[in-house]
Amino acid sequence: MKKLVIYKNRCKACGFCIDQCPKDALSFGEEFNDSGYAAVVSDENLCIKCGTCYRVCPDSVFELIEE
């Protein structure tokens, strides 16, 4: 099973991953991270583990790993 890991403290809430995710699985979270940004969260039910967010995030927030 692949797992999408989100390093929320690296997120700067630019929104590019939300725009690029083919399944609309990403959104800004309700919690602010250590830098004060509304870090992105994913919806497990929508995510297909395609890795697009990993490829487009300028701040290395995502990792996709085999568990």
């Binding site: 700067k12 995030c57 290395s60």
Partner: peptide, 24 residues
């Protein structure tokens, strides 16, 4: 499939503005 992980060379944090292409 290969794991998609942060490259070892990349620092955890950077000083680029939100969305800046330099980070990518």
């Amino acid at each position: 499939a290969k794991n998609l992980v942060t490259p070892k060379l990349i620092s955890e944090f950077n000083r680029f503005c939100p969305g800046c292409g330099h980070g990518l």
